[in-house]
Amino acid sequence: MSIYLYQFLTGLSSGLLYFLTAAGMAIIVSGLNVINFGQGAFCMFGTLLCYSVYEATGSFFLGVAAAVVVAGVLGGYVTEAMLRPIYKRPPLFQLLLTMGVGYLLQDFFLFAWGNRMISASVPEILNFRVNLLGLPFPFYYIFLIIISLIICAVMLFVFKKTKIGMIFRAIITNRDMVDCMGINVKKMNSLMFIVGISLTALAGALNLPITGTQTAAESPVLFTAMAVLIIGGIGEIKGAFIGALIVGMCTSFGAMFFSQYYSLIPSLLMVLVLLIKPEGLCGKKTNAG
């Protein structure tokens, strides 16, 4: 029995990490109407930055903070300097631009960090085990669950209760109208991009002690996040949450039963969901495009 609880908690924590990435992507997709194909690279950027800062200073939390801030700044630069001049162009070009940026970043990582596996041990403070039904369970996973749930709650609060969240929601519903109300939509776009990128970088940084990353390989995160988004319905943060949990659970339990094929699970789930409900589990029919 306890092994199932163990897998459940692992699935929950990895699902919540997927949620952070997918939520970042969902914000960007719904706000800017661009699928950010560079998301995987930014996630890897978070991992690598956290690793370097952790190595240099010995403080994991400083590393996480640095990853979030620096990746956010880079994301802001990408929107302001590269994406902004082509807002007038068709969205396909913006999408391909993010893809190009992702490629550039990826090879930059390969150049700067070398072709190797990057991972680190769990920081001392969090490196102990909790007894759950007689089985020692690493506390780090519980820490991940707590952190992700806190961020989720904060995001919900900001989205539903504050003024800036209101503007975000308004942009998602009708961008032109918000522009007419005298709000600088382009600035808001950049802000949304920064938030999305920071969330992703945070997920990457938190992932460092678990799986780490391989600089040469393309980050599998992007595809998992895409699967999560499609499962939940594009541009829906609630959908991203549900989709991420489903994918996390299925991957975790899948790794237990068919360990060989478990990396197929996100894409299989995606195809299944599309067969049943093409607009995603939480998507609205009219918004399927």
């Binding site: 999408l95 594009i234 894409s267 195809v271 599309l274 093409p278």
Partner: peptide
């Protein structure tokens, strides 16, 4: 073709990955 435009692209890429 069950989905359109942007989702089509993402789904297609997902299939490719599968």
């Amino acid at each position: 073709l069950r989905v359109q435009a942007l989702t089509l692209g993402m789904l297609f890429m997902g299939l490719n990955l599968l």
